[in-house]
């Protein structure tokens, strides 16, 4: 069964290399272990995260794609849907059974049809448009709603830091 996970991850990796989505690079951290990936995500144009390169770690379960992977930014990230420790909170990363927040329908949750590429694209889209209903980082959500300038200033700082400038 885990062999199936490995084959699927290999197929996804191949697809991400041969036909990469714009501004995204992802692959296993080490060829020895295909269940831990690192992904680099470019902040979407026209948003406060524009131009930043945000590294994140993806950890896949052995029964992938039946269960979703876990995703965690390894850089600083100040965003309503990202926990202060970097874990990403989006509905497609939630297993179909559990619903920690009680606000999503099962249609929004994980399904084996999802893929690394789709996850990363969703993350790019929440970078552009945070979903402030599900506040993983309450401070960020509040600031996003009430003090956008300050939020932009902080994200600018994060972008610069992510580029090592």
């Amino acid at each position: 069964m885990a062999g199936a996970a490995l084959r699927r991850l290999m197929a996804e990796y191949k697809q991400l290399v041969t036909n990469p989505p714009e501004g995204i690079v992802a692959g296993p951290i080490s060829e020895e272990n295909f269940f831990e990936w690192e992904a680099l995500i470019t902040g979407p144009e026209g948003t406060c995260f524009e131009g930043g390169i945000f590294p994140a770690k993806l950890i896949f379960p052995f029964d992938y794609p039946l269960s979703p992977p876990k995703m965690q930014f390894t850089c600083d990230m100040f965003h309503p849907n990202v926990y202060p420790d970097g874990r990403v909170c989006i509905s497609i990363l939630h297993a179909p059974g559990d619903d920690p927040m009680g606000y999503e329908t099962s249609a929004e949750r994980w399904s084996p049809v999802q893929s690394v590429e789709k996850i990363l694209l969703s993350v790019v889209s929440i970078l552009a448009e945070p979903n402030d209903e599900s506040g993983a980082n309450v401070d960020a959500a509040k600031m996003w709603r009430e003090n956008r300038e300050e939020f932009n200033r902080i994200s600018e700082k994060i972008v610069r830091k992510s580029l090592g400038l």
Partner: peptide
């Protein structure tokens, strides 16, 4: 290859930002 691609992404982003 992966390493190169990551580096290139970084360089491009940096250049663009500047």
């Amino acid at each position: 290859t992966l390493k190169n691609r990551k580096e290139q992404l970084f360089l491009n982003a940096k250049q663009k930002y500047l």
